[in-house]
Simulated assay, not measured.
Amino acid sequence: MPVTKPLKKAVLPVAGLGTRFLPATKALAKEMLPVVDRPLIQYAIDEARAAGIEQFCLITGRGKTAIVEHFDVAYELEKTLEERGKNDILAELRDLAIEPGAMMTVRQQVPMGLGHAIWCARAFVGDDPFAILLPDDLMQCDPPCMTQLAEAYRETGGNVVAIEEVPMERVNRYGVLDVAEDKGRLVSVKGLVEKPPADKAPSNLTIIGRYVLMPEVIGHLARMERGAGGEVQLTDGMAKLIGNQPFHGLRYTGRRFDCGDKIGFLEAQIAFALSRPDMAPAVREFLKRYS
């Protein structure tokens, strides 16, 4: 097993405008949209914490202050809950709080792509390996998806990305793996292509919004080379690591819900409600009315 530095840092890009959910996101950050009773950003932070991550960097934009406030201590609210004897809710709220100094925010002033957003976190990353979690990708996994990635990172060293197979007609929406060796759970990668047309895609194995990357990717992103869509693409920066560092894709166990899409968001509501013993019977009952 390779010697690896502990994975303790995570970057969460949350600067997007959420235009596909307007008008709901006109004054509300899309990452604060709730699935059942928790906002998307909370699911991502909880997933990272379960993997042993202790430090968080939010890449924000205008109108995103509510995300940071969500993880702050709400003294007046906590006092009111305590006075009313609502101790279960109070304990849940207190569990949300981030340790002092463990969360920072960096502003991405101009929307220049995911690669640019990650480059904005360069001071936070420093010389350490780091995770990336895209809150739009809501994961329902046991163990949590980032825990699976962290375990794979300790096993292989280097870079590890979560992957899934998609129909060839949809590969043009994703970063796609060029496979060197497919070992089932782990795939050794020899190249990456961002949003290729189906007839030029090297495979149908695509990267989803969970990554463990080495800090050297920041130097490649710093060149600000424009890729697909005229943006600085994270996939292009990652591709330059291949051959110099281990690079693997992980077929994770679980389900992903694309909560940047209205249908995916609605499906996530149902799936997560059905996973709750306190809600599942009532949800199954009302769903019968729509079958």
Rank of each mutant, 00 (worst) to 15 (best):
A48H: 00
R49E: 06
A50I: 05
A51D: 06
I53F: 07
I53A: 04
I53V: 12
E54C: 05
Q55H: 14
F56K: 03
F56P: 02
C57A: 11
L58W: 08
I59K: 04
G61N: 10
R62T: 13
G63Q: 08
K64D: 11
I67Q: 04
V68I: 11
E69D: 11
H70F: 14
D72K: 15
V73S: 13
V73F: 13
V73D: 13
V73Y: 14
Y75V: 13
L77F: 13
L77N: 12
L77A: 15
E78I: 05
E78K: 12
K79M: 07
T80P: 00
L81D: 08
E82F: 10
E83G: 06
R84G: 03
K86T: 02
N87R: 14
D88F: 09
D88E: 14
L90E: 03
A91L: 13
E92Y: 12
L93Q: 06
R94G: 05
R94Y: 10
D95Q: 14
L96G: 02
L96H: 09
A97W: 12
A97C: 06
A97E: 12
I98M: 15
I98W: 03
E99D: 10
E99Q: 10
P100Q: 07
P100I: 04
P100E: 10
G101S: 07
G101E: 09
G101K: 08
G101T: 09
A102I: 01
A102C: 12
A102F: 07
M104N: 06
V106H: 03
R107G: 00
Q108D: 05
Q108E: 09
Q109Y: 10
Q109H: 13
P111E: 12
M112I: 02
M112G: 00
G113N: 02
G113L: 00
G113S: 07
L114S: 03
L114P: 00
L114E: 10
G115W: 06
H116E: 13
A117L: 03
I118W: 03
I118G: 00
W119A: 02
W119N: 04
C120G: 01
A121G: 02
A123K: 15
A123L: 12
F124W: 11
G126K: 05
D127G: 11
D127A: 15
D127H: 15
D128Y: 10
D128G: 05
D128V: 02
P129N: 09
F130L: 01
F130T: 00
A131H: 04
A131V: 04
I132V: 15
L133H: 02
L134D: 02
L134R: 01
P135G: 02
P135T: 03
P135F: 05
D136N: 11
D137T: 01
D137M: 07
L138M: 06
M139G: 00
C141H: 11
D142N: 15
P143R: 08
P143V: 05
P143E: 01
P144Y: 09
Q148F: 05
